[in-house]
Design a protein around this nucleic acid. Structure first.
Lengths: 398, 398
DNA sequence: AATACATAGTCTATATCTTGAAAAAAGTCA
DNA sequence: TGACTTTTTTCAAGATATAGACTATGTATT
């Protein structure tokens, strides 16, 4: 029940530094004057802290803005090349590694295909590690300027230095990915579920911007969700929160690939939808076939939308978000053609009050934002604690 | 995205004071020495802050404890009569008002029966206000020592000074209960959904103690839930989070009294269960009839348990709690006789990993803890900001 | 009874911190 | 050039937590 926060007067400085830096990061070029309003700090403190940050080269000046007959404001911004973040997307069909500057410009990219169904741990680890080496080399970024590596993986990721992974679809049961990767790279690691990293990408740069309570629903072959509570990804006791795909929507209903019955994923996951429509595909043709099906007017699609609406309604009833972002490749396809119907079905299955305060929108970043989101984990940590002089924090793996 | 926390050096003190007071409240009699470990503060600061609190009479000494050959420790505790909290339970059949000291001893109680189905706003408001007057008079507590009034009501409670209520079962649509009550009492008000107040009671004094991530599932005539995330009640964007009863568990299933179809409440709410079993009752005989049904071995009960298990599994999959507390009068009856089966059904409908880290237990406080929980809202605020000298906080209504 | 020892709690000196007010900086306008 | 405006920095004041010295209050031993 005790939540220790700031204690000493020095933590105060660190906290205010973090608040200021975060404000600057998300507000873009801003003058010191505006920062006082944004952060609630006094002008004197803003001057102090920005002075420090400028001296450390973490922020830089970014031009002037005239003001009607007064000293012009100096705009400040985060120095985009102060450090760099690497994001890794470990997906069903590929391992993708990207390197970003702090403005999230992609500077280098490296991709490896995975054979369908072949996700041996050592193969994936090798791909990730060589991908990291490749993007660092390609971009010409000094290794000392790499702030860390974020990794988005399927399944449940236990927090802790080991970053134990449980991913049924990969056949991974208790794989200590953190330990394995750390043996091959010196960079700080942040490992998280791919749905959660993608959710954070939509929150920072996509359709979730500006909301404090949101759910990012991800519908691809499988189904997942990322829950944002009070502006932060909600993880629950063991980081497995948000397993929306395997909530039951029909007791004793269709078999799900998780082994259970009546899971939402068995009704709205692309693989299950195609199966229900009697369309036989493999991973390479799945997306095209699904796209065709969505526009075909098939009753299976109607049913899918019904279940999707109910599933979204459940999220709204339980989490009371201000925004629901529908993403994932299948979710985007469904949403592009049928968003109105989806909303209508959600409304029918939801309590009036929470529905009326929630907006349902489509994701803006496309289905490939997992690596970007993984990189934001690194940036998030950077914004929280730029003082490299600070002492031991909890282990870097999240 | 900016979360301003401590700013000035004075807030630091306030924060540390709150941390210390909270530790003391939940740990019971504790020495200064132990408090340094509990709070992470230095001995000097603990000495300082406890000095302040003692001078303010907010905490008091509570005896000595010998230590093997050294100065004995002086135990400290929160002064139970420093202030008093009033809790109000606005239920379907009654309005109950109770007054507690800070140890949550009930010092006075006042109850009014409501005719079934008759929940006129002005009647309820009158009962609450006269109840408050009654318990203050009966207990002999000086009005100046009443820290506030917590009110647990059905339905959705919008945050803000008006405390707008939307309660279908009461026929209340947009009732500004906060405004109405504040006109009749000088005490600070805290209004919240009854399921949430009861959940907080279980967290503080019942089966939820010690957990940071929990869900309190409340099953009575209707069905609700209180979600605890990171030790705090999760409210979502508009305080309506946790509407578990109206999540869909069967698309196109049974009609629910909310107007929807296939709601969980239509399968496991006591009213619905009795209806499904073909038992016709009114509010006065409902509980006895339900108790009898539970032990009858009826297939309706089996089905109820199946749905309950699935409903709990959905909560575990979505929230990943470390504990699920089953409460509410019907939930307690079901749990007392069928907890093993309920757990089994939950396991069948849940992903392995999150299920294995969640324990399902029965509530310990009985079905009448709404008023107690409402009073904890007052105490919670007290523990957060005892410095009456502090400047304006957000409005006292929550 | 005296002394040594152990543990709890307080006091003091110090290094920080934020802040409001005053001062400085850097413009515009007439 | 001087008056005025707006932004930013400087400075003194007030407040805080901490480390470490110091005091208080016991038990154990001689």
């Amino acid at each position: 029940m005790v939540r220790p926060e700031r204690r000493t007067v020095r933590d105060l400085r660190r906290g205010n530094r973090a608040v200021l830096l975060r404000a600057l990061y998300f507000a873009g070029p801003t003058s010191r004057h505006e920062l006082t309003a944004l952060t609630g700090l006094s002008a004197a403190t803003v001057s102090n802290v920005t002075g420090d940050l400028l001296a450390d080269n973490i922020i830089v000046e970014a031009g002037l803005v005239d003001s009607d007959g007064g000293r012009p404001r100096v705009l400040l911004r985060v120095n985009p090349t102060y450090g760099f973040a690497i994001g890794v997307d470990v997906g069903e069909t590929h391992v993708r590694v990207e390197l970003f500057d702090l403005d999230m410009n992609e500077l280098a990219k490296s991709e490896f295909a995975l054979r369908p169904g072949a996700h041996e741990v050592d193969v994936v680890v090798r791909h990730v590690l060589s991908g990291i080496d490749a993007v660092v080399a390609d971009s010409g970024v000094a290794p000392s300027k790499v702030l860390g590596v974020g990794v988005g993986v399927p399944g449940i990721v236990e927090r802790g230095p080991e970053a134990m992974i449980h991913a049924q679809t990969f056949g991974w049961d208790s794989v200590p990915l953190g330990t394995l990767l750390r043996a091959g790279t010196p960079f700080p690691l942040h490992i998280d579920n791919g749905a959660k990293t993608m959710g954070q990408a939509e929150m920072w740069f996509g359709a979730g911007r500006g909301s404090q309570h949101a759910v990012i629903a991800l519908i691809g072959s499988g189904v997942g969700a990322s829950i944002i509570a009070d502006g932060m990804t909600y993880r629950g006791a063991n980081s497995s929160a948000g397993e929306w795909g395997h909530t039951k929507i029909a007791i004793g209903g269709r078999d799900c690939r998780c082994g259970g019955r009546g899971c939402l994923e068995a009704y709205i996951g692309a693989e299950a939808v195609l199966e229900r429509a009697g369309i036989d595909v493999d991973t390479s043709t799945e997306q095209a076939a699904f796209a065709e099906l969505v526009t075909s007017g098939s009753p299976v699609v109607d049913e899918t939308v019904e279940y999707l609406g109910a599933g979204l309604a459940n999220l709204i009833n339980l989490f009371n978000p201000e925004r629901i972002v529908v993403g994932g490749w299948a979710g985007l396809l469904l949403g592009q053609h049928l968003l109105t119907t989806i909303k209508q079905k959600a409304a029918e299955n939801c309590l009036t009050q929470p529905y009326s305060t929630a907006s349902i929108v489509l994701g803006r970043l496309g289905p490939d934002a997992v690596a970007l989101g993984a990189a934001t984990l690194v940036v998030d940590e950077f914004l929280l604690s730029t003082t490299s002089s600070s002492v031991s924090r909890e282990p870097a793996v999240s």
